[in-house]
Design a binder for these strands. Structure first.
Length: 274
DNA sequence: CTGTAATCCTGCGAGC
DNA sequence: TGCTCGCAGGATTACA
């Protein structure tokens, strides 16, 4: 579920609630989430303090006093929240970190278990791990670099935007929304893109993501921020999930097609296939 | 190397 | 009411 704006919102919330806090007892309800999950959390993390929290793509990284780093991915249904320690424990809550000298608890919940929580020895190890799959942050990507990677492939724009190697952090919602803003058909091939079109698309991506961050991301079903608060950008969607509804620009009914194994929403009038 | 499918998992709404 | 089917903010792996 969570794409860059949702993850950014969680990170900003958690900075307020978690930085400077120390882990006390940790409870692991189930450990078969994803990837390396065979960690004795208590033995390794009790006594550690969270020094800083950052986002890279859709990953959340917590830097600890020992230089170890905790890496989270929220997958489709992940939630990372700070709540009262005595609050009811919802289904599918997998990890609970008591925060020393507070009545608060950090909780990791993930219904579909596509998410992960992994411990690394230091920041370099994290970069090596996620760096293999991640390209530039969208806000740092230049038009030239974007143009180079887009035109180097015969895949369609939807597939390119979902590829984290090209731009880190964009997912199904914001890919559709950015393509609408840039007036580009999701099925258009990367190799057919001009420099002007790439500039338009890169700008649209940045604008959509920033707009969504301002609205604390999008809550369709499961997403909540680090404080448990929902997002509001789902009310700003122009095409995502609006199949059959009139295009906000030209009133033509929004259509949906399947691209890169994902549903893609677009306006057949504003976003001509050509 | 490039691009496309299948897979992991749970829940929910649509349709019968 | 109850069952089956398809679909859902993602990413890896296996295959053509």
């Amino acid at each position: 579920m969570p794409e860059l704006p949702e993850v950014e919102t969680v990170v900003r919330d958690l900075r307020e609630l978690l930085v400077g806090k120390q882990f006390a007892a940790i409870r692991c309800v189930r450990r078969d989430l994803r990837k390396p999950w065979n960690v004795d959390w208590n033995a390794i993390l009790v006594g550690e303090t969270v020094e800083s929290i950052r986002r890279r793509g859709k990953w959340i990284v917590m830097h600890l006093t020992s230089s170890q780093e905790l890496l989270f991915h929220l997958g489709m249904t992940g939630q990372l929240t700070v709540t009262k320690a005595d609050a009811a424990i919802l289904d599918h809550t997998h990890l609970l970190f008591d925060l020393a000298n507070t009545d608060q608890q950090l909780r990791f919940r993930d219904i579909r278990r596509f998410g992960s929580a992994t411990l690394f020895a230091n920041a370099e190890a994290v970069e090596v791990f996620i760096g293999k799959t991640l390209g530039s942050e969208p806000f740092e990507l230049t038009d030239k670099a974007f143009h180079t990677s887009v035109t180097a492939t015969k895949r369609n724009l939807k597939a390119i935007l979902l590829d984290q190697h090209v731009v880190a952090g964009v997912g199904n919602i914001y890919a559709d929304e950015a393509l609408f803003r840039a007036k580009l058909h999701p099925g258009k091939l990367g190799c057919d893109m001009t420099l002007a079109e790439c500039k338009r698309l890169r700008k649209a991506i940045v604008e959509v993501l920033n707009h969504a961050i301002e609205n604390r991301g999008s809550s369709i079903r499961n997403y909540v921020g680090g404080s448990g608060l929902k997002g509001g950008f789902q009310n700003e969607f122009r095409v995502y999930g609006r199949t059959g509804e009139p295009c906000p620009r030209c009133e033509t009914p929004i259509e949906m097609v399947r691209l890169a194994q994902r549903s893609s929403h677009y306006c057949p009038q504003c976003q001509r296939a050509e």
